[in-house]
Write a protein that binds this DNA or RNA. Structure first.
Length: 482
RNA sequence: GGUCCCUUCGUCUAGUGGUUAGGACGCCAGAUUUUCAUUCUGGAAACAGGAGUUCAAUUCUCCUAGGGAUCGCCA
């Protein structure tokens, strides 16, 4: 990771700054998407910064998971990812500067003392605001060899305004914003300091993140002021809740983004779904990314939280699958089979030789029309992977009764004499057969489908027969002929 | 509890001081169809409650209720 924070300073610089404590969850993904969209819409830069200041909670696996998630979602960032930890020295310098200009002070209150104060305040149902005796004490009185933290000397009266593009003007009474810690007693910088220094050094122009950071914006504004720096444009977007309206937490099915990949969702569909959670453009629902980039701006961002609805995501996914390129879908099916989460994927992969792949591609127009996820698509293509003798599901089994098998026998004899093995020729032959034997087409088509695929549902049977090829199709029919 | 935010069909949302309050998903019914799906048509379904401003409020103001966020030497 890079430690050089300076950028070319274009008009718009945004960043996605996840803390690497777990996978990339759906809310983080949307925040990243909004940032990315805005940067691409405005011709700006989209930076990635890993907030790994807390060494204890930071894991390399989480960094990998986040990066993989972003890559899969196709949200490409500019330059190398930044490591916040790598910039700790700069953060300390900023704190020193604040100490020097009197906007920060050394506080010798111990953590235990503070905890005790907090507990009593809570017990007395009093709100607890840190009021350090060291705030205005002469530094000369400082005890020797005693650990201290550096705190922000934040204003005690008046209010701090956060002029937010999504939330509007929100002001906080300064009396409620206490002297937050800038540098811990071990000299390491805390989140709020690090964010301000990094965003400033990276020339970030717009800070786009979840509303859960709104009060941080007020605190950070005070740090910016103390440092004499310009405050960036704030954009705090509403949160995404679980289907039950509660906060989307790990316990509430806040799946990592990779879970959606494993479930067979397309990144384009997920982007489309996610952007509509908290952002709108009139009545538009299906918005390809290219159009999103043209339209996206913060004036379309709402304020109320949204619930995650898989049904709608699924519908959108079906749309994107239907409209996807056939070869691309084949490639994506293969990708999914390679995923360790996909049970049976290896087995399928083993069968997916050039021949099967060709059949899969040829069947794709019929297959993709019927599937809402890649997983469902692969499942529905099982008959292409199957080897004789086929196994039959319950409905197929029922379709293949004695009369059906007898019909299949005469039909397959007829088909065997056919010179051309195309869907059209096949259909004509079967229709003629149905007419001659006084059968409704469905009466013969369903057993045919069952014999060919082992199920009662498939793309049009004549297409299935054509793709399977004369020999295989006839063999499967013979297997079920009485 | 303090501070801050939110509230239009079940869900995501559009919308305006005067609309039959629109769209999408889901649901129901029908059409098309060799199955399923697609597609098409139709239907049920919402302005949280109260007060005020106004000729007129879903829209503006206030209050109430409900929901959410945040209050760490976490990020």
């Amino acid at each position: 990771m890079s430690n050089s924070l300076k950028t070319a300073n274009p008009a718009v610089v945004v960043r996605f700054a996840p803390s690497p404590t777990g996978y990339l969850h759906i809310g983080g993904a949307r925040t990243a998407l909004f940032n990315w969209l805005y940067a691409r819409a405005k011709g700006g830069k989209f930076l990635l910064r890993i907030e790994d200041t807390d060494r204890a909670r930071h894991t390399p696996e989480a960094v990998t998971a986040i990066i993989d998630g972003l890559k899969w979602l196709e949200l490409d960032w500019d330059g190398e990812p930044f490591s916040q930890f790598a910039n700790a020295e700069r953060h300390r310098e900023a704190a020193e500067a604040m100490l020097a200009n009197g906007t920060a002070y050394k506080c010798y209150l111990s953590k235990d003392e503070l905890d005790a104060m907090r507990t009593t305040a809570e017990a007395e149902k009093r709100r607890f605001i840190i009021d350090s005796p060291w705030r205005d004490r002469d530094p000369a009185q400082a005890p020797a060899n005693t650990p201290f933290v550096v705190r922000l000397k934040s204003p005690t009266d008046g209010e701090t305004l956060v002029a937010d593009k999504a939330q509007g003007d929100v002001s906080f009474p300064n009396a409620d914003l206490d002297d937050l810690i800038l540098l811990r007693s071990d000299g390491s910088p805390t989140y709020n300091l690090a964010v301000v220094v990094d965003d400033h050094d990276m020339d970030v122009t717009h800070v786009v993140r979840g509303v859960d950071h709104l009060t941080n914006a007020a605190r950070q504004s005070q740090i910016y002021q103390a440092l004499g720096w310009d405050v960036p444009v704030w954009v705090h977007v509403p949160l995404i809740h679980g289907p039950d309206g509660a906060k989307l937490s790990k316990r509430h099915g806040a799946l990592g983004i990779e879970a959606y990949r494993a479930d067979g969702f397309l990144p384009e569909a997920l982007r489309n779904y996610l952007v509509r959670l908290g952002w709108s453009h009139g009545d538009d629902e299906i918005i390809p990314t290219i159009q999103l980039i043209e339209w996206f701006d913060f004036d379309g961002v709402g304020k109320s939280p949204a619930r995650f609805d898989v049904a709608k995501l699924t519908d959108l996914n079906g749309h994107y699958i239907r409209h996807a390129d056939d070869a691309e879908l084949v490639r994506r099916c293969r990708d999914i089979m390679e995923l360790p989460e996909y049970e049976g994927g290896v087995a399928l992969l083993a069968k997916l030789d050039a021949g099967v792949e060709e059949k899969l591609l040829a069947s794709m127009p019929g297959l993709k029309e019927r599937a809402k996820t890649l997983i469902a698509l692969i499942d529905s293509a099982a008959y292409l992977f199957a080897e004789r003798p086929l196994t039959f599901d319950k409905k197929a089994d029922k379709l293949l009764d004695e009369t059906a098998k007898a019909d299949l026998k005469s039909l397959s004899d007829r088909l065997e004499a056919l010179d051309t093995w195309t869907p059209e020729a096949l259909e004509e032959a079967v229709r003629t057969f149905a007419e001659e034997t006084d059968l409704k087409l469905g009466k013969i088509a369903q057993p045919l489908r069952a014999a060919l695929t082992g199920t009662s549902v498939s793309p049009p049977v004549f297409d299935v027969m054509a793709v399977l090829g004369r020999d295989e199709a006839l063999a499967r029919l013979k297997d079920q002929s009485a």
